[in-house]
Amino acid sequence: MPHRLPLFPLGSVLFPGLSLPLRVFEDRYRHLMTDLLALPADEPRRFGIIGIELGHEVGASSAHQLSEVGCLAEVRTVRRHEDGRYDVIVEGAERFRVDAFVDPDSDHPYLRAATTPLPDEPGPGAERQAERVGRLFARYCERLTAIGMPAAPPGDFPTDPLALSYAVAAALVADQAEKQHLLEAEHAAARLGLTADLLRREIRVIGALPTLPAGPFLRRDINLN
Rank of each mutant, 00 (worst) to 15 (best):
D105M: 12
H81G: 11
V88E: 03
A93V: 15
V102S: 13
T77S: 10
T77Q: 09
P119N: 04
D87C: 00
R76L: 11
D99Y: 11
T116N: 06
D103P: 09
G134A: 15
D120G: 05
D83F: 07
S106E: 12
H108Y: 13
R95A: 02
E82N: 04
V102F: 13
G92E: 10
P104F: 11
V78R: 08
Y110C: 14
V88Q: 00
R85A: 03
D107I: 15
E121M: 05
V90C: 01
R76H: 05
D83E: 15
A130L: 09
E131D: 13
I89T: 07
P119I: 11
R95G: 01
D120P: 03
A113V: 06
E121F: 14
G123I: 13
S106H: 09
T116C: 04
R95V: 01
L118Q: 00
G92M: 08
D103Q: 12
P104N: 07
V88M: 02
D83T: 06
V98E: 00
P124V: 12
D105N: 13
P104R: 12
H108C: 10
E91A: 07
F96I: 04
E121L: 13
F101N: 06
V133H: 03
V102A: 11
A100Y: 14
Q129D: 14
V133F: 10
P119M: 08
P117K: 01
A114M: 05
I89L: 10
A130I: 02
Y86S: 08
V133R: 04
E94S: 15
R80V: 02
P124Q: 08
P104A: 04
H81F: 12
V133S: 03
G125V: 02
V102W: 09
L111D: 04
D105A: 13
R128P: 02
A126Y: 02
D99T: 13
S106G: 04
G134L: 12
E131Q: 13
D120L: 09
A113D: 06
D103R: 06
T115D: 03
L111K: 03
A130T: 07
L111M: 03
P119R: 14
T116Q: 15
D99M: 09
R80L: 03
A100G: 14
E91L: 12
D120H: 06
T77A: 04
R76G: 02
L118I: 02
R79C: 11
S106K: 10
P109T: 04
A93D: 15
A113Y: 03
E82D: 11
A130Q: 04
P119D: 14
A113T: 09
D120Y: 01
T77R: 07
P124Y: 05
T116W: 01
L111W: 06
S106P: 00
V90M: 00
F96E: 07
V90R: 00
G84R: 10
P124A: 11
P117F: 00
P117L: 00
R128M: 01
D99H: 10
R128A: 11
E82P: 05
D103C: 08
D87G: 03
D83K: 05
G123Y: 10
G92P: 06
D105T: 08
A130W: 00
E121C: 03
T77M: 01
G84Q: 14
T115C: 08
T116K: 08
R76K: 12
G125C: 01
Q129N: 06
Y86M: 15
